[in-house]
Design a protein around this nucleic acid. Structure first.
Lengths: 241, 241
DNA sequence: CGTTTCGGTGAACACTCGTTAACTGAGACT
DNA sequence: AGTCTCAGTTAACGAGTGTTCACCGAAACG
């Protein structure tokens, strides 16, 4: 016990003294020490954990198949450090869902600021959306993948965010006075349909092989046409009909 | 070696001789011996493996989180027996996808035989679809869950089946002469949209808590309205527009 | 009948896993 | 200055993992 501890300390001091000795640096040593605040550093490794989880899912793994040790390893931190940030993997997943929710809200905010595109509204919006999906690849992938696949807990959390997104979208449509003939519940129903279609399209975008502009263009075209059908139906809609 | 083997044999004979000794029966002993054919029995445990995997996913687990040993345990078979039926878990998943494809084709066949419902086509179809989803709970759940969540291999296989389904649906619509104004590519695009909406609705059906007729009715209503929007858009569609 | 086939078995392999406990040491606090 | 806090570390636990190998014994076969 005392002996063992002594030995450990000696070893570590030895490593430090020798400088680069071939052994990988510990997580803490990876930090640039420009930011001295302890809270800031904690936040930083927390983000490392979140990002590592996303990165591990990048190649098509599901969240449920990730291990705690796997995530900490990818984050460059010892497994037990995990518990300083999350109670268990479920809590990490919920944090990811929250991040994704914030991301989605940013999409809506940007769309609001840009205003209604002058002509060819749908095609233009699709281009912007596609860019957004590529810019936030990992988060969108996570949400689309775990939306139906994850544990009931995660699924519920994602469902909530998606519903919220659809509701905000409906309010925006109302305020922009597009589709003025439709009641609010109908608008929500339609936005639900649109959001589902958007998420399906996002999944399609994200797992098509790189540099296949032909297929990619077909995908975009299909997405545009589907949205046109929906909005055509929406303009023709008669309440209670 | 020789010693060890001898000991094992003795132990097994001992168990047999003593009859029910509290130890659980092996997988083979669970079979009714009415079906003597060896091939038939093999098929049977294969099905046990497939069904066990589905059952394990029933409570919201993803396929990737299942272990080979876990599946064999649930199937009442020793882990090594797995390799008599599948090379690895991926192959089992592909077999499940194939089963699900057959299930989907059955849905289309039944729909064809029933013909076009006399009145209120969409609402009637939704009722039938809902019943179908509940009848094939596990398979639909598997497909909807692994559609975006699974490994690229599985995802690709499922995408193929879904695409096939949409194509067949488009052909049926064409032959029934509904939407006669639409070209075949447009029909496919619309069927793609419909199928996505169907699968989303299926996921919604499947993970709502039992005996919540209110929420369930809302879900059905929403689904019906969304399909109405789509088909309304489809009837108003002008090609090249 | 004797022989072969082959689905299922049991033991052992070298892993990885989540979680606990005690300990370290640099930053925060007084 | 001395004390405290707490993110990160090492060590160890029991349990579960995929895969291998030789083996069994009843059905299938000649």
């Amino acid at each position: 016990m005392a002996y063992r501890r002594h030995k450990r300390v000696v070893n570590r001091l030895l490593k430090r003294a020798l400088g680069t000795d071939g052994t990988p640096p510990t997580g803490a040593e990876l930090f640039e020490h420009t930011l001295v605040s302890r809270a800031e550093r904690k936040q930083r490794t927390r983000n490392h954990l979140l990002e590592s989880a996303l990165r591990l899912m990048e190649e098509g793994r599901s969240f449920m198949s990730l291990g705690l040790r796997e995530v900490t390893r990818a984050a460059g931190v010892v497994p037990t450090s995990f518990y300083r940030h999350f109670e268990d993997m479920d809590q990490l997943a919920l944090a990811l869902v929250e991040e994704t929710g914030i991301t989605l809200r940013r999409l809506l905010r940007e769309a609001r600021q840009a205003g209604v595109p002058p002509i060819n509204i749908i095609r233009h919006s699709v281009q912007i959306y596609k860019q957004f999906v590529e810019d936030h690849r990992l988060h969108i992938m996570f949400m689309a993948g775990e939306r139906w696949g994850g544990s009931p807990l995660i699924r519920r959390a994602i469902r909530y965010e998606v519903q919220h997104f659809a509701t905000e979208m409906a309010q925006d449509l109302r305020e922009l006075n597009l589709l003025p003939a439709l009641s609010m519940p109908t608008l929500q129903m339609i936005c639900g349909l649109v959001v589902n279609t958007m998420l399906n399209a996002a999944s399609d975008f994200l797992d098509l092989p790189k540099d296949q502009p032909r297929v990619e263009q077909e995908l975009v075209e299909n997405f545009v046409l589907q949205l046109r059908v929906i909005f055509l139906g929406a303009t023709q809609w008669r309440e209670q009909g």
